[in-house]
Design a protein around this nucleic acid. Sequence first.
DNA 1: GTGCGGATGAACT
DNA 2: GTTCATCCGCACT
Length: 202
Amino acid sequence: MPKLPHSFYQNEVVTDLAVLLLGKQLFTRVDGQLTGGTIVETEAYDGLMDKASHAYGGRFTNRTRVMYEQGGVSYVYLCYGIHHLFNVVSGVEGSPQAVLIRGIEPIVGIDVMLKRRNMSALKPNVGAGPGALAKSLGIDMKLNAKDLLGDEIWIEDNGIQYTPEQLIAGPRIGVAYAGDHALLPWRYAVNGNKYVSKPHIK
DNA sequence: GTGCGGATGAACT
DNA sequence: GTTCATCCGCACT
């Protein structure tokens, strides 16, 4: 099960990387429990240029610092005071790009994920939605700024390959404040997969 | 130090 | 479709 190399994350076209991450498999080992799933939905955030990005205009704070690192580390932050959201930092050092993981199809440790969610049966909302999947995988601030080739959180390429026809793109979610940039079609998903979050594209 | 609001989700009507 | 839980990061004083 090969972990993706650092070179994969240093792709400077963050929208390309967001597409390439679809079909890759995200794993965590938290409290000794292995959980993971196939990535089926992502969003690209293009650092300096992107009004929806936390690092828009070069904003550099304790929170956004990790976005400026070389691609291949995690960026986790708390949203709405409740939900942890997991991003993959990409690009070269000094270029604050990131891909938000919005949906996974559970594969490993499903019983652990259900326990973390207080659920008794596998339903789409175990993996659909950025806050939901983070909770299922045990992701919180302790997993911020981690090397994605470490043994706490990592991504593997297990050979899943989608054709362009299976993928769909649309505007990003929850970024209305970004004005004209809210319309950019930088949300990508596997068309028809039930672990893609709502609202559905098209 | 203070105040505002958000890359959401779940439970409602 | 609407409401609300819940709290830190950030901008500004």
